[in-house]
Computed example of a mutant assay.
Amino acid sequence: ADPLLRRSDRADFQANGMLAIAKRLKGNPRELAAKVVESLPADELIADIEVSGPGFLNITVSDEAIVKTLAARAADARLGVPYAEAPGTTVVDYAQPNVAKEMHVGHLRSAVIGDAVVRILEFAGEQVVRRHHIGDWATQFGMLIQYLREHPHELDHKAANDLAASGEEAMSNLNRLYKAARVLFDSDEEFKERSRRRVVDLQAGDEATIALWRRFVDESKIYFYSVFDKLDMENGDADVVGESGYNDM
């Protein structure tokens, strides 16, 4: 019969299988449990077994057995964790921040959980493909690019900060430009129309438009990686695939 072993608040483990055996044999579960205890050989694994209730076995493991098990795991580089018997390849899609926008708690939650899953799978021997599908392809980029084309002094200011910008500084630059462009986009119908045409240019691969778009993406990555570094996550350009990557398809 299934021993029905589980953790116990009265000992280390509790075995409840005697009830099923007694029902099958039409016997008294406490008496059967006592017979089992009497029949167990003495060894260094079990410190004590007590019959309780209708026939539960409360099992206490010896300190010596616990210490030996811990010592064996501590001496093993893998802490006793085996490799997967048939490892394969798993794609883990996580974090997914948006270009030119600050990461919010949803991105952080996804990043932490995704990184934990990646590490567990890799530790088991799985081949893991990390993927961050960043938001880098939408109307807002037409708006941002058009704004910079019409306000070149903002571009100069941004260029002067590019080399020094890192982490929050990079996102601060983008936030400043985004807010200014958004105000104009919401108040000026002609600018809004020009911005929409700029999205068409972006999708068509216009070189000048793509060059400005690329700067937004690169500066956003500086910020993304600074956040990932704080979370002790390993990430690189090879792991980042933007929505833009599907434009040609």
Rank of each mutant, 00 (worst) to 15 (best):
G17D: 08
G17K: 11
A20L: 15
A20E: 15
A22N: 05
K23T: 12
R24H: 10
R24F: 11
G27Y: 00
G27I: 00
G27A: 15
N28Y: 01
N28S: 14
P29F: 02
R30C: 06
R30Y: 06
L32S: 11
A33C: 10
A33M: 10
A34T: 12
A34L: 15
K35M: 12
K35W: 01
V36Y: 13
V37I: 13
V37C: 09
D43K: 02
D43W: 05
L45A: 14
E50R: 15
S52C: 13
I59W: 06
T60K: 13
V61E: 11
V61F: 12
S62A: 15
S62W: 08
D63N: 14
E64A: 15
I66R: 13
K68V: 07
T69H: 06
L70Q: 02
A72T: 13
A74G: 01
A74K: 08
A77R: 07
L79D: 04
V81Y: 02
P82D: 06
Y83K: 03
Y83W: 03
A84C: 04
E85R: 11
A86H: 10
P87Q: 10
G88W: 10
T89F: 02
V92D: 01
D93N: 11
Y94H: 08
N98T: 08
N98E: 12
N98M: 04
N98W: 07
V99A: 01
A100C: 08
K101L: 09
G106W: 04
L108E: 05
L108Q: 12
L108V: 14
R109G: 11
A111I: 13
G114Q: 09
D115H: 14
V118A: 02
R119A: 12
L121Y: 01
G125H: 05
E126T: 08
Q127G: 03
V128R: 13
V129Y: 00
R130I: 01
H132L: 11
A138S: 09
Q140I: 04
Q140E: 06
F141V: 06
G142D: 01
G142S: 01
